[in-house]
Structures are given as C-alpha cells and as structure tokens.
Simulated assay, not measured.
Amino acid sequence: MRTTNHLIGLLNFITFLLSVPILGGGIWLSTRANNTDCMTFLQWPLIVIGVAIMIVSLAGFAGACYRNTLLMYLYLWVMFFIIVLLIGFVIFAYVVTDKGSGRIVPGRTYEDYYLPDYSGWLKDRVASDSYWRKISSCVRDSGACRKSGRVVGGFPEPAEMYYLRKLSPIESGCCKPPSECGFSYVNETTWNPVSSGLVVSNRDCLRWSNDQEQLCYNCNSCKAGVLASLRKSWRKVSVINIVVLVILVIAYVVAYAAFRNNKRMDNDEPYGETRMEKARPSWIKF
C-alpha cells in the first residue's frame, strides 16, 4: 500500500512536470498566433488544460503522500474529465487539420498552396470574409513578407536563388502570386505580369498587387498558407499531447489503486482482506 501511494505520488510529480510542455505548447501557439498563424482563439483550450493538469497533479501528489482520501477522490474525478478533454482536443486537432498540403511546383523548391485542398470547419472559419479581415491584417502586421527579403551583393536576391528557397506557407501563399500565373520575378514581393497569352482560371492572378500593403493578402492562396501553417503548428503540439495523455492514463489507473488502498486503510482492513471476511470471520484459514 505504501509503495502504491509512493508510486502515484511519483507519477503525479511527473505529470506535473509534463504539464509544463502542454502549457508551453499553448503559449507557443499563442506566440505564433500573434506573430504568424494569426488564429488567436485556438491556443486557449490547451493553456487551460495545462494549468488544470498542474493543479490536479499537485492535489494527487498531496493526496497520495498524505493518504488523504478526499483529495484522492476529487483527484480521480477531475483527472477523468481532464483526460476526456485532452482526448477530445487531440481528436479535434487532427480532424480539423486532416486535409491539405502544399503542391509541388516544377523547378521550384517551395510549394504553392490552394484553398480547395482544405475542407472542414477550420477552412470555413478562416475563409469567411468577416474573420479573414482580422487574419489578413494580422499577417500584414506581422511583417512576414517584409522579412522574407534578401540582398545579395547590394541587390535583391536573383530569381535563380529565390526559386531554390524553402518558403514558409505564409511567405509562399501571401507574399507572392501563385506560380501558375506566370509572373516575372523582380524581388521577393514584386512580380510583374508577362503578356504571353497564357490563360489561367486562378482568380488570385488578378488579386495580386505590387502594393506592399496589398500583395496577395486577399488571395485564396494566402488563406491556404495560413491553414497550412496552422496544420504544421497543431501537429507538432498534438504529438506532445498524445505522449502526456498516455502517461496521464497510467497515472489515473495507479491513482485508482492508491485510492482503494487508502479506503481500505481508513476502514482498518488489512491488505487482501475484504469486508465480507471482516463481517463473517472464519476459523478456517487457507
């Protein structure tokens, strides 16, 4: 019994330490939301779960070490709901970021991004006009396009070097026109149309502007770039969440055993003796 309580105390100390990466993941998403991804509401469930795990782990640690049955009882219920919430968050994160990826462009290292490649709730929210105005303003204010500029020998980076760059989804979708438009490269954020008789159906070719305050911020490719950036961020955080979830489930199972031991000790039941044996003692012992 003492060993079990010590084990649950150790596991809760570990889960307390593991709540730090969850909380850190939420803070990291918040930082990216302010600087790059621009989706400011998605990180809060993760931050709340991280703080809750911290508090509950401390309660479970105290309940196990001091053999406080009430704390252990509350710990089991609250931890159960936290595990359910974390499972729901992981499933939600994978579902809303399930589809969509960049398309390979011949002769380019970077990829192009297209809004029809994405689907579901997250796409509808990002693509909505009312919400996109806030996101595009955030992307513009983040300076991602301005920071993408490079100078070689006092001149803008030549096209041959630019085509070999691995651009971020935001840089590819918002800071340049889609490659199929056939625009000629001047610098990272200045592209001129070429009168070659090429006909394309992509409306983003008409939305592109060399005005540094416009660029492709109103393009569907920019919306797709934001979605691709979100997908990468959420997948990284989800890996951490799954590892922590497995450990939380193990801690919960051991905590339940510790809780039963505490109740047995409170009832003065020796280990392995049941209530029936106490109520009806037998002279014959096997």
Rank of each mutant, 00 (worst) to 15 (best):
P158C: 04
W77E: 09
R203Q: 15
L23H: 09
C138Q: 05
Y131I: 10
I250H: 03
N262I: 12
K263T: 06
L164W: 05
G102K: 00
V253G: 04
C65L: 15
F81R: 00
T109S: 02
S136I: 06
A144P: 06
G24R: 06
N261E: 06
C181N: 08
L76N: 10
C145M: 01
K176C: 07
S238Q: 09
K134Q: 15
I53P: 02
D37S: 14
N241M: 15
Y131K: 06
F155H: 15
L7T: 09
R150E: 05
E157V: 07
A127N: 04
S221K: 05
L115N: 03
L122S: 06
E277R: 04
R103N: 14
C38D: 02
K223A: 04
S130W: 15
G100C: 02
D141T: 08
C38W: 09
V186I: 13
V95H: 11
I83N: 00
W132N: 05
G100M: 08
F259N: 00
S57G: 10
F41A: 11
G24N: 00
P116T: 02
N210L: 12
F16D: 08
I83H: 05
R32I: 13
R140H: 10
R125M: 13
D124A: 01
Q214W: 08
L70N: 12
D37P: 08
F259I: 07
I82F: 06
P106H: 08
I247A: 07
G26Q: 05
L10G: 00
L164P: 04
A64E: 10
Y110G: 03
S233W: 07
Y94N: 14
C222A: 01
V254D: 10
N218E: 13
S184K: 11
Y114R: 09
I91N: 12
F89K: 13
S282I: 05
D117M: 00
Y256G: 08
W121Q: 14
R2D: 14
V96I: 10
K236W: 14
G9T: 05
R165Q: 07
R32G: 13
W121I: 15
V152Q: 02
K278C: 03
C219P: 05
S282P: 11
S179L: 11
M54D: 06
T274S: 01
L215H: 04
R125E: 11
L11V: 02
L18T: 01
Y252I: 02
L7S: 01
R125K: 14
G154N: 10
K278M: 02
F183G: 07
P178R: 03
R275M: 15
Y73C: 15
A52S: 09
P45V: 04
F92Y: 14
V48G: 11
S128R: 11
F16Q: 02
S195D: 15
I87G: 03
I83T: 01
L198A: 12
L122C: 01
V95N: 06
S209R: 00
L70A: 15
M39P: 12
G120E: 04
N261Y: 08
R125V: 12
M161H: 09
F155N: 15
I27V: 13
I55P: 06
E213D: 11
E157C: 03
L248Y: 05
S196H: 13
V105H: 00
S184A: 14
Y256W: 12
V20I: 12
V194Y: 06
S137I: 04
Y73T: 14
V48T: 03
L206A: 10
N34I: 13
S184N: 12
Y252P: 01
Y185C: 01
I53T: 04
